[in-house]
Nucleic acid binder design. Sequence first.
RNA 1: GCCCAGGUGGCGGAAUCGGUAGACGCAGCGGAUUCAAAAUCCGCCGCCGCAAGGUGUGGGGGUUCGAGUCCCCCCCUGGGCACCA
Length: 804
Amino acid sequence: MRNYTIGDVLARYHAMRGYNVMQPMGWDAFGLPAENAAIANNVPPAAWTYANIDHMRTQLQALGLAIDWSRELATCKPDYYRWEQWLFTRLFEKGVIYKKMATVNWDPVDQTVLANEQVIEGRGWRSGALVEKRDIPMYFFRITQYAEELLAGLDNLPGWPERVKTMQANWIGKSVGVRLAFPYALDGQDEKLWVFTTRADTLMGVTFVAVAAEHPLATRAAANHPELAAFIAECKQGSVAEADMATMEKKGMDTGLTVTHPLTGEPIPVWVGNYVLMSYGEGAVMAVPAHDERDFGFARKYGLPIRQVIAVDGETFSSDAWQEWYGDKARGVCVNSGKYDGLNHEQAVDAIAADLEKLGLGEKKTQYRLRDWGISRQRYWGCPIPIIHCDACGDVPVPAEQLPVVLPEDVVPDGAGNPLNRRADFVHCACPKCGQPARRETDTMDTFVESSWYYARYACPDANQMLDARANQWLPVDQYIGGIEHAILHLLYARFFHKLMRDEGLVSGDEPFANLLTQGMVVADTYYREDAAGKKTWFNPADVEVRDGIAVLKADGAPVIVGGTEKMSKSKNNGVDPQALIEQYGADTARLFTMFAAPPEQSLEWSDSGVEGAHRFLRKLWKASFDHVQAGVVAAHTAGELDDAAKSLRRQLHHTIQKVSDDIERRKQFNTAIAANMELMNALAKFDGMDAVSRSVRQEVLEAVTAMLAPIVPHICEALQAELKPGVKLAWPTVDESALVQDQIELMIQVNGKLRGQIRVSANADKASIETQALASEAVQKHSEGKQPKKVVVVPGRLVNIVV
RNA sequence: GCCCAGGUGGCGGAAUCGGUAGACGCAGCGGAUUCAAAAUCCGCCGCCGCAAGGUGUGGGGGUUCGAGUCCCCCCCUGGGCACCA
């Protein structure tokens, strides 16, 4: 509700300013929540999803959002996802999409792949079984091919928040380093173990290398080493989530094999490490315990040698405890490194890379942390991947004329594997190439694919192709609004997809979203109960009551566990339905309250205390206008003599117009815009003149407030406008610069930085006369204790600080 | 663990470029109105203090005439970590 209201306020504001605004709405309809609901309630995800969409549409309409419903789309409809399938086949033929093995969470009891969210403390959410890592074939988008463009493109997005750009840049993670090899011989064959490092300057300090459990070298070593085989099996337990990998205890085991140091020729032991990922880079890392904190801990734990090869002036190395400077690239110089001694980081990397290159054992390389985007999901409720597997022809993309591959909607998943595999009518088909019986791919696409291009489809929802010329007329999106939780994945994928579509000739721009507003999360408390098997049932905050610090379920009065404050989600059942609020107070109060509670970018802990205040303000606005209109509508003030009170009210009015315009347009901060209008209304309430001039100023104020609040509370403002200015459309008010002029201003007086009083000076007084007036003021006389001023700081329009 | 934010009264928050900390609102307190209540209106409202004044923006240090705002260190909360979306 919050993000849609934000969008609607901006849309209405810009419409008032004369722009042609398109505000569309669509439903990101595929995905896990629908499958979870299906499992819980035994209804097909399709039926559940359509019912949900109807419910949400009703709510959005109740909020009075100015949405162009003729452009509505749902990503689970074949007329939407067929174009996604069409593009998939094009990209597959182009090689932008390819197939490789990838590691997933496997639940051995339910025989199904689990989402990271479904792995709780290393166990499957339904079965409770220990989760294993398993390698399966998946389709990947080559997003890494666009890594450099995605990174560089951030510089062309002035309308994006800095923090989002920083997060994306870090995620892409460009680093320049050296790819180098440790040669070894195995079964009489000469092989090379490749690693990537940004610290080639520490190469002489390598005391071991660590490989992933799945690394061929590990597999080979385990063949006649049962203990190692057992360790490798242990490494394959647990989830694939990076957070789990990074926080788990680092463990390793010696393989007994060695590789050769590329420069010294020394034998280097090979270890298997549970923290080394096969799918990351080369699946192997060189370890320099003296200068890498993680390697240091690992070496201490297993008694591996620690060899200092970097020194910093004035610091003493000790292998007893890690010190920050051990990893310092900026100050360190090489020691114990033979011919490289004395070189700094950059020089040493260059020299070592050059030597490795001569040996054919390494070269400088730019690497990205970003990995290719795996989009295969072993789930039913998603867009079918348009591939047919033929024994003779291999993976064959479905020809355009056979699209869409329609997902049957009458399926109820049960949590054990993808039910599509059991749908013979879906699986069996003929190979488009040779006509022989073949099998349809049953994996579906990551739902991020649907959400990567819907914004473009809004421009041409009825086009009989993916996008037509209208997309280029509208794009890029002027104002995109999304939760900060999308800062990396969704927004990076959408940027990537836009470039894919550009390279297919579908759009002409490089970037999809010109201005981005990342709305803060709406968070609420979570409550749950746990059954004997450890399964959690989550309760909605509306059904929970907190008494004397103990949370109890209203229904049965028995306690529930407080799960902390988290973003509203279906899985934690802590969403708040705005329906009740709208029913009790009306859409305008609900909108005003939501916009007044916090600035859009900030997260908001939901609570409806304060909603009364929003409602009260609207009643006051209504009453003030009604009283004024009762006494007769007049023309708004334009010119003529005003007394001080009227002058001051007009100054506040035009100051408010200035502020509110800036708040909405530039700062996108509505709570302060609302507050400024409240202040103005408070001032108007104290302004009681009933003469013709006073009434014309009152008319001017009421007209302006009505217009300024119209984007936020459109219904009441339209009704008020009809009374105040019948037959005239609401228009954004303009600032009368002459009303802002002041002859006298107040300056604060500080003595030694402490506020001691104020003086009134003429608005155009020069620094010298201000200083004289300040020194003569009572405040300074009293607080300077007769001492001579050492320094006088005059900040024009603000304050005077006297240092004694 | 890593990356990104945030932390200001009893509460939501304001302070936009280093210049009056606490705008606006909620809650509370006092008063008016009322037979009474609701609603409405007026006033008070960071903390200590009778006052003068002191003190105060997560904690510690620093820069500056002046720091909520800038710098360094630490603590806590939230978001993300590639299969929630």
